[in-house]
């Protein structure tokens, strides 16, 4: 039993934090929004060069063969900067699925490839305009399609740094990769949404703390008032009790059982709630500034809102936890339970 991160994990996360922090600055968000863009090819090239896109692809399929905990730390750093690029969808969810179904596929050997993924639950596909391939769910199968066979209709997300599209496609024009583990994809999506939520939440608290130290009213920094302090302390508390769930969920995705599913869902629910709580607290602490387009906190709120709806609603995820709670033993000796394999 060891719940600490390894030195390599911390180093990878540090690389991500630095890369994202240097390139995905508030000024850069603003430039992208001005030009109505949600994809920066230069940053994507750098992301591909660091190996983040190959992390969840096994070595036998040309990847780095790392695990969900490793990638979750990258997703958390991506959340902290509300990264516009589809790193999580492509590298965190689509690539490992493709590697399971078609380990020899050339896309897996191209670190810059963007694979869009369209589970039946999602009404829209993120970053479909820059995707080099699509993984599509139909009747439990995964279909692989090239962009020229997909009809894209832009939809407008409330999140200005997220491009979403309704898609039309014809299974006859796509390659049927056979039955696919969409549940596993949902688990990964849940864990990495949770990781992004942790990043979003911490960013919101950090922005609000910085503002509260600076902004003066009644002759004092507003951060010296308890009502302000307590909003932020409550948000930080929510973060502290979502993060270990997220990490544990990442560590158990591979288990693939009812316990792993419940934990992934738990992580997703509480992490996105923490992000929402922190973002709303940050808006409140900023006063009218927080309600203005020019101040960045709304971007965090909107990303959290967007993530909350896709890959299963909170009610869907709560039902997965209920299934675990009501059909398996619960209690203090069951925290790290696994399904016993039937011999």
């Amino acid at each position: 039993m060891d719940f600490t991160l390894s030195a390599e994990q911390q180093m990878f996360a540090h690389t991500a934090t630095t890369l994202f922090g240097n390139t995905c600055t508030p000024a850069h968000w603003r430039t992208m929004m001005q030009h109505d863009r949600a994809f920066d090819p230069d940053r994507w090239a750098q992301i591909a060069a660091t190996g983040f896109t190959a992390m969840l692809v096994p070595e036998s399929a040309g990847g780095l063969g790392l695990g969900e905990v490793d990638f979750a730390l990258i997703a958390q750093a991506a959340g902290y900067v509300a990264l516009p690029e589809p790193l999580v969808e492509s590298a965190g969810i689509a690539a490992p699925m493709l590697a399971e179904l078609a380990p020899d596929h050339a896309l897996l050997r191209d670190p810059a490839a963007i694979i869009a993924i369209a589970p039946a639950a999602n009404p829209v596909v993120a970053s479909a305009d820059v995707a080099g391939a699509f993984l599509l769910e139909k009747d439990g199968h995964a279909f692989l399609a090239t962009p020229d066979t997909i009809a894209l209709t832009p939809a407008q997300s409330i999140d200005p740094l997220r491009r979403v599209f309704r898609i039309g496609w014809d299974p006859a024009a796509a390659q049927d990769l056979g039955p696919a583990d969409w549940t596993r994809a949902t688990d990964r999506a849940a864990v990495f949404a949770a990781a992004q939520g942790m990043g979003l939440a911490q960013r919101a608290v950090d922005l609000a703390v910085a503002y509260a130290k600076d902004r003066q009213q009644f002759g004092k920094p507003i951060g010296s008032y308890q009502a302000v302090k307590h909003h932020l302390a409550s948000a930080q508390t929510a973060i502290e009790f979502a993060r270990p769930v997220m990490l544990a969920a990442a560590a158990t995705v591979a288990q693939g059982d009812i316990y792993a599913r419940a934990r992934a869902s738990h992580a997703r629910i509480v992490a996105l709630e923490a992000a929402d709580q922190a973002a709303r607290a940050a808006i409140q602490v900023h006063g009218a500034m927080g309600y203005s387009w020019e101040v960045d906190v709304h971007l965090l709120l909107k990303r959290a809102l967007a993530l909350t709806g896709c890959w299963g609603t909170p009610a869907f995820h709560r039902a997965r936890i209920a299934a675990r709670l009501f059909t398996r033993p619960a209690g203090p000796d069951q925290t790290f339970a696994k399904e016993q394999s039937v011999a």
Binding site: F3, F241, V245, L247, H266, A330
Partner: peptide, 23 residues
């Protein structure tokens, strides 16, 4: 929903404490 939430809270607290104990 509250019953499930109570379970989630207890699990979250346990995981947090395991993490603290490891640290």
């Amino acid at each position: 929903a509250d019953v499930v939430r109570a379970f989630m809270n207890a699990e979250a607290y346990a995981l947090n404490i395991y993490q603290t104990a490891s640290r």
